[in-house]
């Protein structure tokens, strides 16, 4: 499996990740090398094997639906790039 600079551009868009156009070819090569490595996996028969998500096969723990956090909005917003009146500011989304 070999990827092109154009593929990288598409993947980068999915990840909302800026890539310099001049680096596209290098990333395409690196990713193709990684995919080449991954073709080794196909050789192994894994029919009937259950995918493993947690090393101890634990289920996600649930907790009571109670408020446990204090209101720390001001503290958290103090480190935000841009806030106003308790709101995080981003460029205009709706025209």
């Amino acid at each position: 499996m070999s990827l092109t600079a154009d593929d990288v551009k598409k993947i980068a868009h999915l990840a909302r990740l800026g890539i310099n156009p001049e680096d596209g070819v290098a990333y395409a090569k690196d990713l193709s090398d990684m995919l080449e490595l991954m073709t080794q996996m196909a050789a192994l028969d894994t029919e009937g094997v259950a995918p493993m998500a947690h090393p101890l096969d634990q289920a996600q723990r649930l907790r009571a639906d109670l408020v446990t956090e204090a209101d720390l909005r001001d503290k958290y917003q103090a480190i935000a790039p841009q806030v106003e009146a308790g709101l995080y500011l981003v460029p205009k989304v709706i025209e």
């Binding site: 990288v8 990740l17 991954m38 995918p51």
Partner: peptide
């Protein structure tokens, strides 16, 4: 960036089973 790209690709529609699920099965083995 390399790893974000790789991960995004492996999780994208059409490749998820071939890469992510396959890798999780091998993880169990």
């Amino acid at each position: 960036k390399r790893r974000i790209l790789m991960g995004t690709y492996a999780l994208s529609a059409g490749y998820y089973d071939a890469y992510y699920i396959k890798a999780q099965k091998i993880r169990r083995l």
